[in-house]
Design a protein around this nucleic acid. Structure first.
Ligand SMILES: [Zn+2]
Ligand SMILES: [Zn+2]
Length: 133
DNA sequence: GCAAACGTTTCG
DNA sequence: CGAAACGTTTGC
């Protein structure tokens, strides 16, 4: 099987499709919105082309139901998950009707993980991504 | 159908 | 970037 190594780029589990087509090799990443694929994609692509490697490519705007990110569920065993009732005072509790978020004190620790479009900050390190045959 | 709450987009 | 708004899924 093909292996991925790399620095702070997209975690392996964020790759939902991997194509080794000789003509048009691709690595699709776990983002539904085509805009978001990965920071520095253009830079990486050019670098990869020069090195004769694969290039990262944007998701073709297709009926993206296959590409839909799976919705995670609370782990059920962390501290917050075990909490019984809503605090009733946090902003999520107070504006539940418009925020649609769980009470801050009950937010699962695992779900807190995996932040914004995966660390858009570390763009400079994205060059570390490599695909081995 | 509805309520709960995750994921994405927008706002400050 | 964090917080808010909101769209959307998921279980019942
Ligand atoms: Zn609360
Ligand atoms: Zn949890």
């Amino acid at each position: 099987m093909h292996k991925l190594r790399g620095g702070p780029g997209p975690p392996v589990q964020d790759i939902y499709e991997f194509s080794l087509d000789e003509e048009d090799p691709k690595v699709f990443l776990g983002a539904r919105s085509a805009r978001v694929v990965s920071p520095g994609v253009d830079y990486i692509r050019s670098e990869h082309e020069q090195a004769g490697m694969f290039s990262m490519v944007q998701m073709e705007s297709q009926d993206s139901m296959a590409a839909q990110r799976k919705k995670r569920k609370r782990c059920g065993v962390c501290g917050p998950c075990l909490k019984k009732e809503n605090c009733g005072t946090c902003s999520n509790c107070l504006n539940r009707k418009i925020r649609h978020q769980i009470c801050k004190l009950r937010k699962c620790d695992e779900l807190k993980r995996r932040k914004s479009p995966w660390e858009l900050q570390k763009t400079t390190h994205m060059r570390e991504i490599r695909v081995y045959l």
